[in-house]
Design a protein around this nucleic acid. Sequence first.
DNA 1: ATCTTGCATTTTGTATACAATGTGCCAAAG
DNA 2: CTTTGGCACATTGTATACAAAATGCAAGAT
Lengths: 221, 221
Amino acid sequence: MDGSDLPIARLTLPEAAAERLRTLIIEGELPPGTRLNERELSERLGVSRTPLREAFRMLAGDGLLVQLPNRGAQVVALSRDDIRHAFELMAALEGLAGELAAARVTDDDLTELRVLQAEMEAAHARHDLPAYYAINRAIHDRLSVIAGNPILAHTYRTLNARLHALRFRSNLNVAKWDQAVDEHRQMIAALAARDGATLRDLLIRHLRAKQEAVLEALETD
Amino acid sequence: MDGSDLPIARLTLPEAAAERLRTLIIEGELPPGTRLNERELSERLGVSRTPLREAFRMLAGDGLLVQLPNRGAQVVALSRDDIRHAFELMAALEGLAGELAAARVTDDDLTELRVLQAEMEAAHARHDLPAYYAINRAIHDRLSVIAGNPILAHTYRTLNARLHALRFRSNLNVAKWDQAVDEHRQMIAALAARDGATLRDLLIRHLRAKQEAVLEALETD
DNA sequence: ATCTTGCATTTTGTATACAATGTGCCAAAG
DNA sequence: CTTTGGCACATTGTATACAAAATGCAAGAT
């Protein structure tokens, strides 16, 4: 069985509201720092304040919101240091994921990853940055799943969501982009060779480069 | 200033309830698998159901509770695999903390850690397991703080709380105990030498040993 | 002119009432 | 004797009313 014997996951109202809010935040509809008025938002989402507040608690747990007593919730605004810290942790998580994935990867997984890699190179060739980001994310997500550690995967996704809320896209110079694509090639090779240590190092370096690009992009805001 | 200019953190009712529940779970008062009846618990804690439900959401975010739609919350019961996964991640987090700590540790930090280490050896000498655990935890916590990455520290604490809810104490054979104390000595040495790579390896091995001890202990339940 | 002080308004915090859903038991049919 | 249907009860889900707290503005004092 694949787990479909557990109760089917119908979304409860607070969960649905949280999901909706999450995308609003990540899509940039609710930019960092925005104060969230409960009454206003509850009308906008068509739910009452009670489930909305539960949604707030969930998102606060994910680090997308901060809640100040008697002053409501606001979309988190990461400082430069926060970003540095988040990337530091992300690098370690990706490194671990790579190490574990190398030990467990199947040939089917590799085939799938190679398809994604090809798509990514195509996006790169036609300078399609949004597509590149989407595929890039899919590859890294896949890796964290192949690692076979749900707790890691969850931590990874949560942290990733927080960073995505920054919407740092659209800034990436050509040299770094070329390099990133090349690093991906090396990653697949390391994975195919089941070389966990190398893959780990590659991923950590890869993340460090990404961090630099992000911080640079914020610099020029 | 030390940050005391931010709004002083008075506990809101849901937060207080969550804190209370958290200790009840970690102390083993509410063992894994316990179903939490909202009405009953709200009376016991002296709060109404609304703030209690927000507390549930917070603890669910921390992974201490699972919430099933229309079936309420229950204390999470970790499977052997969950434990393995949690330790896998913990090892990576500790490793990162060690690496970062080695780069930032001050002489004052070292003095403090050496005091804790001495206390730990004393506890070990008099076979005081509870004290040993407490000091052990203090040392590792300290390390994650010295690392200077609050996001890492938070992730670490959260995951740690989940594992502590297992209450796996009271099982540890003498050989492993001796070894653990010795590993701690080596850790302090590596830290004093600012040797991050060595410290990282030590911590990861240390955690692996701990994991084995825990899994063994559960075996004999 | 600037800084308090107090009041009105807005916003969040909590409790409770009501609705919807799930659970378990018992009876009747196969 | 087992199984299924339905009913009563218990529990969770949601909305709303009320209480408490914070914010902004204006008027007065320094």
